[in-house]
């Protein structure tokens, strides 16, 4: 049985102009996101990993329209987000909500919790104050806040409780997709465990789909069905989280995983960390983007690498596979494809 995708992103590209020329005209661009394709099905979780500055936050912000895309398509439930106008666009937008890393700065300190939680509903309009308050109480209960918390201000809460408030607010419009940009990286591990348990519970109860950015690979392996690894604004490897993270195919994914702190392996030697400054994203490299840092670089790496289904050198990636078992694994590296690595 085919499940229609909830979110379909095609060829999404984001460039930021760098002013500097005469009359402030842009002379060059930061290529933050470069032709990204991805799909999320209802109730599914997709994780995004990759080093700082590789374009993760820009990608998700372009998906929900917080950042302007340069080209490409974002289709939600069969409707093109950027083509839609007015009320229709707002409706599509409300199907996606975002939770940021820092609950401190994403919540207005002047508002009581019940107002914060129901703000998206208030913006949508059509609900009385009493109805909003009643809904706030329900939402608060579902994220583990107590009724007496409703009238307090955000600064009276711990980091973990503030993140609960942010989650309650995000689910207030009954979205299908929640975008989580490093939702627990500012929290202690014991509090992280509480928030992750809460998100998994909400997913089971509400059938939410998640798009989660995280630097914590073991968290992504735990939380996500699939994972996409980004490098310089491109997806370089994608597939079922356990498969990709337990047996990475792309040289970059391997380096990334070798450097993840773990109780299970010792600190990598310097040679394994592939030191180097992040490549410049103002002038995109020719050929494979990872070539400068790749220890496997060889003949053929000067050609642009397509993201190709792993183990199938000819085919391209099918974006709507029939079922979970058939989720494709894809890699953007001809040597990994050839089994040379």
């Amino acid at each position: 049985m085919t499940t229609a995708p909830l979110l379909n992103v095609e060829d999404l590209t984001v460039n930021f102009p760098i002013p500097g020329g005469w009359f402030g005209r842009a002379t060059s661009h930061v290529h933050a996101v470069n032709k990204v394709d991805l799909t999320i099905r209802p109730g599914e979780s997709l994780g995004i990993v990759g080093e700082s500055g590789c374009g993760k936050s820009t990608l998700v912000q372009a998906i929900i329209g917080l950042v302007e895309r340069s080209s490409g398509k974002v289709v939600i439930d069969g409707q093109d987000f950027h083509e839609a106008r007015g009320r229709r666009k707002r409706e599509i937008r409300q199907q996606m909500q975002i939770v940021f890393q820092d609950p401190q700065s994403s919540l207005d300190p002047r508002l009581p919790v019940w107002r914060l939680i129901t703000e998206p509903l208030h913006v949508r309009g059509g609900m009385s104050k009493a109805a909003l308050r009643a809904r706030a109480a329900e939402l608060a209960a579902s994220v583990g806040l107590r009724p007496e918390h409703l009238d307090r201000r955000p600064y009276e809460f711990s980091g973990g409780q503030r993140q609960r408030i942010a989650v309650a607010r995000a689910i207030s419009t009954d979205p299908d997709l929640l975008i989580l940009d490093e939702p627990t990286s500012a929290l202690d591990v014991s509090v992280q465990a509480q928030i992750i348990n809460l998100l998994l519970k909400l997913q089971r109860e509400l059938g939410l789909a998640y798009l989660m950015i995280s630097h914590d690979v073991s968290l992504v392996r735990h939380f996500c069905d699939r994972v996409a690894v980004m490098y310089l604004g491109q997806i370089v490897e994608a597939g079922p989280a356990v498969q990709v993270l337990d047996s990475p195919a792309h040289p970059y994914t391997r380096t990334l995983l070798a450097t993840v702190p773990s109780l299970k392996h010792p600190l990598p030697e310097l040679a394994a960390t592939r030191v180097g400054e992040l490549p410049n994203n103002r002038i995109l490299p020719t050929g494979c983007y990872y070539r400068d840092r790749c220890s496997f670089a060889a003949a053929g790496c000067d050609r642009l690498q397509p993201l190709v289904e792993f183990g199938d050198r000819a085919g391209t990636v099918s974006m709507s596979p029939p079922d979970k078992a058939a989720w494709p694994r894809s890699v953007r590296c001809h040597r990994a494809q050839a089994g040379d690595i």
Partner: peptide, 15 residues
């Protein structure tokens, strides 16, 4: 409470 120690999606042992 570390996620690297349990099955994917299993409940984490929060304190």
């Amino acid at each position: 409470c570390l996620p690297e120690r349990v099955e994917p999606k299993a409940e984490l042992e929060a304190i």
